[in-house]
């Protein structure tokens, strides 16, 4: 085998290892074809070059994205309104409680808004988070219009000096037209400064679909990847930025309030690379 053929073979292996780490197939193919291009044009000549180029490509996905800092946003925009969206069971409600604690620790006065009026126990879930953290929650009736609830919550909160609104929404499948319309209505009423898509780290190729559909429907400003404690080297962050070109704001690394971490692209890329070798 010529060294060129060997390199192309290595690229194929790398592609499959990326796929084995849940980098979405489409993204892994994209990375592989970029590596192939570099082999063909002669800028990759050895296995070392290949790994170096891969690191560079992976990092490039995370560079040049608009960075979002909730703290400076909250200082400049009064109030800061954030809507959390995502498919069922990914960790939206838990993440809201974590972000609420984070905002309070940094001197802000957050209000959690329980705009999931559909799922059994959703209201009580956020109420318990409120009792445990001491951070107030605005709740409503099951079956009521979530957009109306959001409207009321904002009026209520503005009159009482809350400066961060964290709006929970019911989990929904991105292909469910009625529920997506409901979400659009919530967004119209809330006029959020930030729309955060929440995605489970254990998701496979569907992460692409979730990102695409929610982005088309209401627009996504950044993402939180949850349950990273179950899968540190998972490819979901990469798949999401590939589609959205928007940053990963936080990762969820457990079920406690403290289990929310800023996402560090450099660490993450090293973790993927170690996983490959």
């Amino acid at each position: 085998l010529s060294s060129r053929e060997k390199l192309l073979e290595s690229i194929e292996e790398l592609k499959l290892s990326l796929v084995a780490n849940d980098v979405a197939y489409e993204v892994a193919e994209n990375i592989a074809s970029e590596l192939t291009r570099r082999v063909e044009e002669g800028s990759i000549k050895s296995r070392e070059d290949l790994v170096k180029a891969l690191r560079e490509i992976l990092l490039s996905y995370f560079t040049g994205l608009n960075s979002i800092d909730l703290l400076s946003l909250a200082s400049s925009r009064k109030p800061l309104k954030i809507v959390f969206l995502g498919v069922n069971g990914v960790g939206k409600t838990t993440t809201i409680a974590k972000v609420a604690v984070y905002m309070r620790e940094n001197g802000f006065k957050p209000l959690m808004v329980a705009a999931d009026t559909f799922r059994a126990g959703a209201q009580e879930q956020l109420k318990i988070h409120s009792e445990r953290t001491g951070i107030p929650v605005f709740t409503g009736k099951y079956g009521s219009d979530p957009a109306a609830l959001v409207y009321d919550a904002i009026q209520y909160g503005l009159n009482r000096g809350f400066n961060v609104f964290l709006i929970d929404t019911a989990g929904r499948m991105h292909v469910d037209v009625d529920l997506v319309n409901e979400l659009k209505k919530i967004v119209r009423v809330a006029k959020p400064d930030v729309k955060i898509l929440v995605v489970d780290a254990l998701t496979g190729n569907d992460a692409l679909e979730q990102a695409r559909f929610f982005n088309e429907a209401v627009g996504v400003d950044c993402v939180v990847v949850t349950k990273v404690d179950a899968y540190e080297e998972g490819g979901v962050p990469l798949s999401l930025v590939y589609i959205l070109k928007k940053p990963v704001l936080f990762i969820g690394v457990g079920q406690d309030y403290k289990d929310l971490k800023p996402f560090n692209p450099i660490e993450y890329v090293e973790r993927i690379l170690t996983g490959l070798q």
Partner: peptide
């Protein structure tokens, strides 16, 4: 929607308490 980890995870669960059957949820999505 779970990806490649399903195998490891199911194996670990099975070792902990033998799994008799499986229910796959959320097939109404993509």
């Amino acid at each position: 929607s779970i990806g490649q980890q399903a195998h490891n995870i199911a194996k670990k669960f099975h070792e902990t308490t033998p799994i008799g059957s499986i229910i796959v949820t959320k097939l109404d999505g993509t």
